[in-house]
Design a protein around this nucleic acid. Sequence first.
DNA 1: TTCCATTTTGAATACGTATTCAAAAAACGA
DNA 2: TCGTTTTTTGAATACGTATTCAAAATGGAA
Lengths: 328, 328
Amino acid sequence: MKNVVTAKDVAKLAGVSQSSVSRVYFEGANVSEKTRKKVLAAAEELGYRPNEFARSLITNRTKIIGLVMKGVQNPFYPQVLQQFTASFKKWGYSVLFVHTNNDEIQKEDIETLLNYNVAGVVITDATMALSAAEAFRSNEIPLVLFNRKLKTGEFYTVCCNNLSASRQIAEYLIGKGGGDMVYIAGNENTSTSREREAGFRETLERNQVAYRKYASDFTYEGGYATTLKVLEGKKVPSAFFAANDIMALGALDALRQHSIRVPEDTKIIGFDNIDMASWPAYELTTWEQPIEKMVEETVNYLLSEIDEYSGLIKTVEVDGSLIERKTT
Amino acid sequence: MKNVVTAKDVAKLAGVSQSSVSRVYFEGANVSEKTRKKVLAAAEELGYRPNEFARSLITNRTKIIGLVMKGVQNPFYPQVLQQFTASFKKWGYSVLFVHTNNDEIQKEDIETLLNYNVAGVVITDATMALSAAEAFRSNEIPLVLFNRKLKTGEFYTVCCNNLSASRQIAEYLIGKGGGDMVYIAGNENTSTSREREAGFRETLERNQVAYRKYASDFTYEGGYATTLKVLEGKKVPSAFFAANDIMALGALDALRQHSIRVPEDTKIIGFDNIDMASWPAYELTTWEQPIEKMVEETVNYLLSEIDEYSGLIKTVEVDGSLIERKTT
DNA sequence: TTCCATTTTGAATACGTATTCAAAAAACGA
DNA sequence: TCGTTTTTTGAATACGTATTCAAAATGGAA
């Protein structure tokens, strides 16, 4: 009962060969306008759609991009997901979605991607063992780490210019006055948290501003709990910089809990510019990650590598910008 | 240079036929333990992975589920996405992710799903033309509408028991006292908003409680703006029921904007129980949608239909429960 | 018209697997 | 041991498409 309309059926109805039908659906092939019309008419009548699997089998290519995500719970990622799918769709690619709970993408998931012979892979917020990457390299499948950096020279990476951003954030907060600042870190094994820390710390030290770092985990609850811990000390710091927005919101709520006024008694700044940051309840000052540009960079690279594989390794850092609201 | 290890190569190394190699990887086929071991050893040595496309071509089946989502911007949906992928993975299925901006899934996307001959389809928060559904039916591809209802008898539907929930919500609010209540509706063309309205209104009317409905759009900004409009009237209603949490949060912020105390001056209740509802800044009373159960129902149905297609049409309504916090 | 260059076409083949079918091997019962 | 049933095996084929290659058709120049 299944869909049985094949190129052969169309060929018969149109009075041409199967090859000609194939050529009509294959971009760049030579077909006369006459047969093209005949074929399309017959195809329309029968409801023909080329079988992607037969196609991929013979071309050894697919129109599928593997998109691996970690931490969908962060409101930042739905946007990323949406933009990727929209962008890939424009180029005729579909998205095979893989969710991983681990920091490092698992063997199982890698095999899925390889089994489906994906045309390219995007890994957001997670990393990958070098040995696993080798499997993609040897199959000439281009790969991008999105928003995660490993040692340079190992992966093509697209992320925000965290170092420059956190320096500017530090300078901005210094400009607002106050002598001691707190960095609320995300998971320590992420390049994003480490880099944001580095730029922030370095700039504060150069300006002789006292600096404390508190470990946290990129979650709202983490930001909340960590801030409560900060407040156990006697003195309220002059400013907080949280490694992402959602922690900043948690921090803000913790401060309110203690009736500490923001921005009068202390200031707080986040990172990402998620939707919630602009909500009246928060009005969070933050650093906008230029998702569109980051996605664009990623897609462009993948498409060019799909077109002709070079194995190019590079780190692309896209600049974001400060969004000033009412918490600083 | 691409992955060239085929079943034939493995067969040669193992000293068996290609058929035997195939049988090792095909569940339920007859192979002696001896050849299985030989084959697996050879496969391991060569790094063999069966080609999914060749496989699908001949079996006319895939291990791919099409997951269509609308409105990824609602924090409710990342959870849904994650649970679906996790659940399908357990059964060996991968997820082809399709994002649609329209209420009704577009022809383009439907063709993608058909081209990849997906084993089943989940449509969350969107609907589909009956004619499009026919394409799936005729190909015996099972389909589930998740969290959206159309006329019964047309689709297999899994959603929350909105009617019963909204009745209980009305009774709960009546129990809290107060004489006039406002319903903040979501998009009017969604069954979820209409059903939640129906149960709420009906119960209020039966109890002779004044009722007003305000149109909105399921977004935070919508909930905020709509509430401001409600407050233009002289009297603050005794309670608000918002069709989803994110609107309820917007409403709450709008109330605070006007220094109206919750729950003293008015009460508010949402729907979904998204993570943010429990944040200290909000502490929103809401109705929990039992996502796990809904996902489980969906997956079970799809798997059984994949196993043997029956075309069964049914509406499954899963009960949720009231989560009482500090806004009522 | 004829000849040559170019474009278009169809027959045949390949892609990597599952599956049929008959043959071979193994297991079993006596 | 032999005969019979059951299990396992390999050769051949099919899935639906893209692609090669030679043949056919077309177009243009003379």
